[in-house]
């Protein structure tokens, strides 16, 4: 009986607290993103939460909703969008990863009269179609394209994109973009696909890259998606004895990637500035909900920026300053 009393007491307390908080003028913003242990998404999350400090000071909040894993990406994300509606969101930020699965959920957001910003994936096209306020982010395809173009312009015309998660729509978009980019400057592109059993295993990625390079000696440009895969692919090139012959670009960066670029073992990193995506998407919505102000610039692109030997020092300064 004691148990029940405590249960009821604390339940009432929280409900009352929630009602009081809810009645103030404030924006409860829900952000749908990647899983929390994903290095790229942890940066987006940090950006969103940093922007959330402002929202919180005005009595609002920022809540991060991410799937437990990427096995069921489209449906899981669609569920999270609907969950945000159910939780009484005042504004929602979400990526349009799998339009077929997620668009109906986004439409439900707009129908419910909740302001929406699409970020990270989908582009302005998706934002317009769905009736979202704006689009913030890089476009996966364009990021891949930039890498392909960069490699091709550097004279590395035979490229391969390392896909460690076959089936994931965003990874396929990076690879399609890379191949299109390298083909735009007269090169050829292909995809090195890994079996599902090697996902997340650096050694498996490194060895696959190495085997592929040995078997296809004509390849001289690689594109890997994500810090971990890029790092592993760099090692794969070294083990194949092809350092200097095969140039590699990777998506995103961290300290070890920057060290690679400084050391010359990696040609470039494509930066989509995840921190900016989270920060701006949340800020736009917070200001809109609180003050009704909008940003007329549509499609706020945070990338693709290219980091290579020419500007790596600057970026490292930025990391030290805590801005990246």
């Amino acid at each position: 009986m004691k148990l029940t009393n405590r249960f009821v007491a604390s339940a009432t307390a929280t409900i009352v607290a929630a009602c009081v908080a809810g009645s103030a003028m404030a924006a409860d913003i829900y952000v749908i993103g990647g899983k929390p242990d994903d290095p790229f998404w942890s940066r987006v999350k940090k950006g969103a939460e940093d922007a959330g400090v402002v929202a919180e000071s005005q009595g609002g909040s920022v809540t991060w909703l991410g799937p437990q894993n990427y096995d069921n990406l489209g449906p899981d994300a669609a569920e999270l969008i609907r969950q945000a509606i159910d939780q009484g969101a005042d504004a929602i930020v979400g990526p349009d990863w799998v339009p077929e699965a997620m668009d109906p959920a986004f439409e439900a957001v707009v129908e419910a009269g909740i302001p929406l910003v699409i970020y990270n994936a989908g582009g302005l096209e998706a934002a317009d179609k769905l009736g979202a306020l704006n689009y913030v982010g890089a476009v996966d395809y364009k990021s891949g394209y930039a890498a392909g173009e960069y490699q091709g312009n550097a004279g590395n015309l035979n490229g391969a994109c390392v896909n460690t998660l076959p089936g994931a729509a965003n990874i396929e978009a990076f690879c399609d973009g890379f191949n299109a980019g390298i083909e735009s400057v007269g090169g050829t592109g292909s995809v090195l696909q890994l079996p599902a059993t090697s996902f997340g295993d650096a050694t498996a990625v490194a060895q696959a890259v190495r085997a592929h390079l040995l078997q296809n000696p004509e390849i001289n440009a690689l594109f890997a998606i994500g810090d971990a895969d890029t790092n592993a692919a760099v090692s794969g090139i070294q083990q194949a004895g092809k350092s200097g012959e095969v140039s590699i670009c990777g998506m995103n960066f961290n300290e070890s990637i920057l060290a690679n670029i400084q050391a010359g073992t990696q040609a470039c990193a494509i930066d989509q500035q995840g921190y900016q995506q989270g920060f701006f998407a949340v800020s736009i919505l917070n200001n809109y909900v609180n003050y009704g102000v909008t940003i007329p610039t549509r499609e706020i692109l945070t990338g693709p920026g290219i980091i290579d030997a020419s500007n790596v020092e600057l970026v490292i300064e930025g990391v030290k300053a805590g801005a990246r």
Binding site: K35, D37, P39, T197, F199, G200, D201, A202, A206, A228
Partner: peptide, 20 residues
């Protein structure tokens, strides 16, 4: 051995070792 080889540690990953 992985951190020494690849000079970076990630939170995710390693799950493949279970069934492998």
């Amino acid at each position: 051995a992985q951190v020494m080889t690849y000079q970076a540690a990630q939170v995710a990953g390693g799950q493949s070792f279970i069934f492998n």
